[in-house]
């Protein structure tokens, strides 16, 4: 009935999403909508939109930002347009633009992006900082860090120091940051719509493995965040093990305070109860995007202060 899914995942999603289960499954049977973020470091939003419209592309604005658009009609490949090559826009899932917006970085700050490649969020943070201040972008993977550099160059980003490192050892840099984005490596179970193999591959063991890694990463983040500094935690997973559990850990064990999201109205509230277990009520302040809300991937964002 649920084509290609393991029994484990169907049962899990049924428990997790309750009355929304069918809607979630229906969304995951389709490709998520493509979106573009206009790169205001290089071009004004309308100028780019008009150029692409003249080529037959059609767009509709996302609710939370006036420079991010869903692609409604793509007559030729967007990534083969001159505008793409010029770095006038970045193609990304619309939900992936939420973390940088919540982070709200300023031009005079020093920001850490702990898991940066391919740079969708690094380039967005740079855009919000108007290419000033400093972003330290950490990435462990040798091949993926090259893609980060290409994207920085294409998008005209000049305020990034990229380092190849395991971010759990970020303390070794001996730097402190005003703001940190931890867009954590995750099971990516919110991307089933485009990564069909996940239907079979996901297991409890995998959720637990990532959960453990995410705790290590957020612990490392705490060590390099200035007092009063902001940490945005995000994943393209909808699993509580990778999300609420990590936030609860950050609050209870690391001394973070969970903040209300600026864009909370666009999210589904975080879950204080899941898989029959009760967790602190404050977890409602986290935000989850369920894939059927905007025909995107599933996503999660939390904002914390130290």
């Amino acid at each position: 009935m649920y084509d290609g899914y393991s029994n484990f995942l169907v049962n899990r999603f049924r428990k997790l999403f309750g009355k929304n289960f069918e809607k979630v499954m229906e969304s995951y049977s389709k490709q998520p909508k493509k979106a573009v973020r206009m790169n205001n470091l290089k071009i004004k939003t309308n100028d780019c939109l008009n150029r692409l419209k003249r080529k037959g592309f059609r767009f509709s604005k996302v609710p939370w930002a006036d420079y991010v658009y869903f692609v409604e009609k793509e007559p030729t490949s967007l990534s083969a347009t001159t505008e793409y090559l010029m770095g006038y826009f970045f193609i990304q899932d619309a939900t992936s633009t939420l973390p940088a917006i919540e982070l709200n970085p300023h031009s005079d700050e020093i920001v850490l992006d702990m898991a940066a490649s391919p740079g969708g969020k690094t380039t967005h943070i740079s855009q919000l900082m108007r290419n000033h201040g400093v972003i330290v972008a950490a990435e462990v993977n040798k091949e993926r860090i090259k893609t980060l550099l290409y994207n920085l160059e294409r998008m005209g980003v000049e305020n990034v120091i990229s380092i190849r490192t395991d971010a759990t050892k970020i303390k070794e840099l001996n730097l402190k940051f005003d703001k940190i984005l931890l867009d954590a490596p995750c099971t990516a179970d919110g991307t089933i719509g485009k990564n069909k193999r996940l239907k079979k591959e996901l297991s409890q063991k995998l959720y637990d493995k990532y959960s453990k890694k995410q705790k290590e990463l957020i612990r490392a983040a705490k060590e390099v965040l200035k007092p009063g500094g902001i940490l945005v935690y995000s994943t393209c997973s909808t699993a509580p093990e990778e999300n609420e559990i990590i936030v609860e850990y950050a609050v209870e064990k690391l001394g973070f305070k969970l903040l209300t999201l600026k864009n909370s109205r666009y999210f589904t509230q975080g879950m204080p109860i899941f898989f029959g277990e009760k967790h602190p009520n404050y977890l409602k302040k986290c935000g989850r995007i369920l894939p059927y809300q905007y025909d995107t991937q599933g996503f999660f964002v939390a904002k914390l202060r130290l």
Binding site: D108, I110, H132, G133, V134, I145, V160, I163, N174
Partner: peptide, 23 residues
């Protein structure tokens, strides 16, 4: 090429960068 503010951070950093600023 890097800005003065980047230079300040770069000098404090106790690890080599992979790349920085404007290539």
């Amino acid at each position: 090429l890097i800005s003065k503010e980047m230079y300040h951070i770069y000098k404090k950093m106790e690890k080599h960068p992979y790349a920085l600023g404007f290539f």
